[in-house]
Design a binder for these strands. Structure first.
Lengths: 121, 121
DNA sequence: TTATTATATGAATAAATGTTCAGATAGTAA
DNA sequence: TTACTATCTGAACATTTATTCATATAATAA
């Protein structure tokens, strides 16, 4: 990682000499935003409960609402967010919408994070 | 997943008959909170930049501050949060504190999420 | 058409959150 | 001790956010 020359660190970091050896690329600003939005979406207890419920099987909105104990309106708002971020997808069967995880990655992310939690405590 | 009998869904979910086949366990409430806190911590653009920077090598606070373009005070606040959640750890060398990712999981989480982002767009 | 069910949406409000500023602490050298 | 550097911390302020309420839409049946 290369820091701007005119802003060189004035501290006595021993590390200073190694600063050019790091990975050169800062994360693309747009990807940084998207990535942060994705993690933030997973970082709400109720949205995480929704995702967790859907690791089991697809569920309709009213079941999801009862499962996590909030109104269907609140769930609907949250599901919209999760849908926009491609964390969940849905399928209509008559008047009922069944939601599912959009992708295997989502479950993997949850499991990996759980591993991290359970390991070093 | 088993929903309380007295609150059976009144909708016409075809799915209703399958409700007992799902994974039986709701995520432990405490783990749910911890997991959400972990994702939420990663869900801030600046904190994510910090973590990204540290996937390259350990860095001191002032370098991190310049790297993401905020005050050292702001970085310090964020680093404390990340430390409390075991996302980063530090090591002192004289007056300088070097921060690093706490664990291989952290980088893996970022990479997995990046994969998800880049895949289905 | 009307009635009913399932879900979505907009606005408003209360709570949570990130940064800044001022000041405190820890380490080192003189 | 004093002076200097690197980092931390508490309080305050502005912004963001999750839920609620009321209403709207979509699908189905009568």
């Amino acid at each position: 990682m290369i820091l701007p020359q005119h802003e060189q660190c004035s501290c006595r970091c021993i590390h200073q000499g190694r600063i050019d050896n790091a990975h050169e690329h800062a994360l693309d600003p747009k990807e940084n935003e998207q990535l942060a939005a994705l993690f933030k979406a997973m970082g709400d207890p109720n949205r995480l409960r929704l995702l967790w419920a859907l690791t089991g099987e697809e569920m309709c909105v009213c079941d999801l609402a009862r499962f996590i104990g909030v109104t269907e309106s609140a769930v609907s708002h949250q599901l919209r967010l999760l849908r926009q971020l491609h964390l969940v997808a849905n399928r209509r069967e008559g008047p009922v919408l069944y939601y599912r995880l959009d992708d295997a990655h989502v479950g993997e992310l949850i499991n990996l994070a759980l591993e991290h939690l359970r390991e070093d405590k």
